[in-house]
Write a protein that binds this DNA or RNA. Structure first.
Lengths: 158, 158
DNA sequence: TAGATAGTTTGTGTTGGACAAACCATTTAT
DNA sequence: ATAAATGGTTTGTCCAACACAAACTATCTA
């Protein structure tokens, strides 16, 4: 095959920039979140629960791509603060269904509000519209990967 | 003041989702990058150099928000592979100006190409247009934070 | 000449997170 | 009914990324 003219420039990958910003945000978030008794990774878990609904611990580990033993510790923290609940699945009583509590949702909202300044700083170069765009893209990317076994329905239905 | 009607929903923050994706990408990138002898954080450094141009090590540490002693090690790796060069600044010979070499740029491009599959997987729910949008938003956010002392010009000009 | 600054080296400590092993409760297969 | 597999938990070990401190060289500035 003759080599294509290569008119289009090589596609740039978002990965590195994404990680770059993740780091910048995480460093700042650390201190902002401290008063809440939360760490960035707790926020991630709560956000995933809110975004994708209640999940089994197993599927949560899959989504977060964390070792399941470490997920246990993470959930222990959150459960101690009553931000999530572990409910036995009625269909398979070995399973724990992890549910964001009302308190968890409120706390998440408060934490997000506290992070406003952080994102204002890190995304200073983006106007509000663009930040909205960014958020929506990420949201869509997240909700798209429904690799089964996550559930947005009422707790007993999972 | 009377409480506002709160018609608009609370603004959602991108931070947690951003970190979530950064993690997913990093985990996959790790193995893809291994044949190149690179780690994700090397890619970040190279990307920053390409995006924002040559920098002093000091300003690089600032941008990457890493401890400068650790930046040294990072740059040592990259310099060993001849992906970057440290040039003495003519104006202030204490300073090292870090320059992405031609080889560095090529290697970065190759690495990015190798990461295509990774991003395809992680951003499966986004169509090409949306991925482009995402990239451009991140790029703009990155280039916006020109906190002085970075330089896109010819090496001797820095 | 003295002090400040850019970078380097070495060394220490903390922490996130991967991994393995042993265990309980429960479900499924034979 | 018994055995095997599965979801979750606990504990413990190991490693890599980092932050931080100290001591050093080279260079610039006062």
């Amino acid at each position: 095959m003759a080599p294509l003219p290569l008119v289009a420039q090589a596609p740039r990958r978002s990965g590195a920039l994404l990680e770059h910003f993740a780091r910048r945000i995480r460093l700042r978030a650390e201190s902002v979140l401290a008063p809440f008794g939360l760490r960035p990774r707790h926020l991630i878990a709560l956000t995933v629960l809110q975004t994708r609904g209640s999940s089994t611990q197993q599927s949560l580990a899959q989504i977060l791509e964390m070792d399941s033993t470490n997920v246990v510790g993470l959930l222990n923290d959150l459960e101690n603060d009553q931000l999530i609940e572990r409910r036995r699945s009625p269909e398979d009583r070995r399973r724990h269904v992890v549910v964001l509590t009302e308190r968890g949702a409120k706390e998440l909202a408060r934490a997000e509000a506290a992070l406003a300044a952080v994102e204002d700083e890190v995304f200073a170069a983006l106007d509000p519209d663009q930040r909205e765009q960014l958020y929506n893209l990420l949201l869509q990317a997240a909700s798209g990967t429904v690799d089964s076994s996550s559930c947005t329905e009422e707790p007993p239905a999972c």
